[in-house]
Design a protein around this nucleic acid. Structure first.
Lengths: 152, 152
DNA sequence: CTTGAAAAGAACTGCCT
DNA sequence: AGGCAGTTCTTTTCAAG
């Protein structure tokens, strides 16, 4: 676990708002010089607090208007079926996230489709036929808000 | 909906792998000059295909070892309770994602906590007391894989 | 930590094909 | 559309306080 001071938290919060900001611009916000800011960011990356920068794509603009969350219970569980399931899921391009969870379901998937008809095809042809897939529950995304989460 | 050619898709896929790459480096991958690549990326941003670049923080390294997905059913639904719920949820720093969904639940939350004891406190003091919160279901994250999703 | 500076590289602009 | 050449800005490293 990495120890952060107030300036580190301030930097991470500013970067969480916009990851494209320059070290100089960030330094002005947190009250540091450009080189000092740059060294702190580099230290946070080396320590593993910052894992990188990811592209935020607009699925709707790219023709994928439907996002669905699936909760999946495996029928027969065990080492083999977990691995089989994960391997099969990775072959579906529409799957954006694969989460292995503990609780009411075994896996949670975030999948996108062009429209509901496309989603139905995906569900029946690709998801329901996954090796070991038992119960499947779906929730269609209406709107979403992402927040930075607690820092420090 | 934005029309993409093969070069745009190639660019988006390369950027999805690593959003810190320079226009020059990307151009070498797709066979374009640095200015041409840069203009394409700017066009994709202006058209809304690229919404920005987001920081990938390592929650575990920052002391948040537990991630939980919550499915929440509202008791009495309606305009007022939806707005009340969303406002109250936004006051909880540990909430990373608020998804309004259609299906078995009304909302899905992604929350982080330092450990399970911290999560229990959060669940009992902050989540169960949300205005309108009825049934709450929890899934603890074991592991997660994120993929770029379909492009084009 | 700071300022100042220098070199390299990336971003951006205008012009031309 | 794309390329080339040039300008501006940022990054990255250094020295000195």
């Amino acid at each position: 676990m990495i120890e952060l001071d107030e300036t580190d938290r301030h930097l991470l919060r500013a970067l969480a708002r916009d990851a494209t900001q320059s070290a100089g611009a960030l330094g002005r916000q947190v009250g540091l010089s450009q080189p000092a800011t740059w060294r702190r960011i580099r230290r946070l990356e080396e320590a593993g607090a910052i894992r990188g920068r990811r592209l935020r794509l607009n699925a709707e603009a790219l023709g994928y208007g439907v996002t669905v969350f699936l909760g999946i219970k495996l029928g027969r569980k065990g080492q083999a079926s977990l691995a089989d399931f994960e391997r099969a899921v990775s072959a579906i391009p529409e799957v954006q996230t694969v989460e292995h969870v503990l609780g009411m379901y075994d896996f949670r998937l975030r999948v996108v489709a062009r429209d509901l008809a496309d989603f139905e095809r995906l569900l029946r042809r690709r998801i329901m036929t996954l090796p070991g897939a038992g119960e499947v529950e779906a929730n269609v995304l209406l709107s979403e808000e992402r927040r930075p989460g607690p820092i420090g």
